[in-house]
Design a protein around this nucleic acid. Sequence first.
DNA 1: TTATATAGGACTATACTGGTCTTAATTAAT
DNA 2: ATTAATTAAGACCAGTATAGTCCTATATAA
Lengths: 157, 157
Amino acid sequence: MEIIRRKTDYAFRLMLNLSINYGKGAVSARTLSNEEQVSYQLTCKLLQKLHDSGYIKSSMGPKGGYFLIKSPSQISLADIVRVIQSPISLSDCLLGINNCPKKSICSIHKELYKLGNYIDNFLSNLTLNQLINIRNNDSENNANFLINKEFSKNKLN
Amino acid sequence: MEIIRRKTDYAFRLMLNLSINYGKGAVSARTLSNEEQVSYQLTCKLLQKLHDSGYIKSSMGPKGGYFLIKSPSQISLADIVRVIQSPISLSDCLLGINNCPKKSICSIHKELYKLGNYIDNFLSNLTLNQLINIRNNDSENNANFLINKEFSKNKLN
DNA sequence: TTATATAGGACTATACTGGTCTTAATTAAT
DNA sequence: ATTAATTAAGACCAGTATAGTCCTATATAA
């Protein structure tokens, strides 16, 4: 089960593309669809949602398209997640005392609560602007995934 | 969308109960169902899965039931998650370079990868034994959720 | 006027999730 | 031996989420 749903992932891409084009005019759904390899229909749907939520504006007609309203530094991945997919929660029971019938359970949820907070904060603090910077600093080679593999070996050390 | 599915949460409870009874003989599904407020049928199903995965043993007949094979210090929440629900992955694309058509995306996934690792490690390092200890240290009052509520108010401060 | 865009409702196939029902097989105690 | 308590396990189901398409309408630059 994916925490970040596929649609949300698509939206990340679309928004990152718009971030790179921030201040350079509108980008059409068709272009975004092609460049980010997301089906045209779905691209439209996702852009509409992002539009309705006030992150992007649209201009209709030829030469129309979408562009960011806010600066990429003011939009986090958590924002996008919130728009596209149902909210991420770590577990049902964290929502309230009602679902947690026994005290014995609370030690579980107390710990899970910390994890939930961490995830929240992580996504809230990761802005589109930061992602652009990471990409730029990251050299021109395509070896990011190799780097990621190293990350995984060293995890928690 | 919950990262820890409800069934997994149930399994956490059942396993914590068995942990508390570790070394004290078998506990029947009926008892576990009552004590942890999980439907009897579902309790049976979950216990069967945990049994098949080698975390608990069963004895049939009257006075039968289930008991842990391993020590609670050797079973993590990640273990239980793995048995009960489909594996947690942060996003489809993290699975491989194949799903990641554009380099521009990698800066997203590089960061998400870190988050995925954190979640993994968190759950892998949280053992049933630790949860018992947390519970015991946590005083005898029932106010854990009040504490949790405070947590939620103060988060990110 | 036309071609290029966005806007948005309706619909669908598939899969997952939580959960139940039913029928067996095992075994301690009487 | 019989009975009652218990695990074992397959089949089934309703509800919902997910990803995605289809179709029609509307706006607008050229």
